[in-house]
Design a protein around this nucleic acid. Sequence first.
DNA 1: AGTAAGGCGGGCA
DNA 2: GTGCCCGCCTTAC
Length: 104
Amino acid sequence: MSFDEKVWKVLSKIPPGKVATYGQVASAAGSPRAFRAAGNACNKNPNSPRVPCHRVVSSSGSLGGYAHGPARKIKLLKAEGISVKNNKILNFDKVLVKEKELKA
DNA sequence: AGTAAGGCGGGCA
DNA sequence: GTGCCCGCCTTAC
């Protein structure tokens, strides 16, 4: 299985209304330092609606980036019940999923 | 706050 | 098979 597939799998493990950092995803994917490669996997993500790449944010709580456009990401996040302001997650610590959950 | 450097996997030459 | 560049990042200066 390619790293990308691992990442997508982890992303799909993110519960609705929650978000995860690329670091957590990368860690759950097997390489805690591959946050960049993890994000890259999302970018190449062939199933954008199936894989919630929009639920992944940067470690600082910022949205980070999005292949379909940041506005789309915000829209999806808000649809999930996550409040986003100025490209920043408001209740970041409250919507942040536990890395343990990703590994589950 | 902004800028620069860094480690990781994938794709292309 | 090897080497180089790239990317939805992260950390440090």
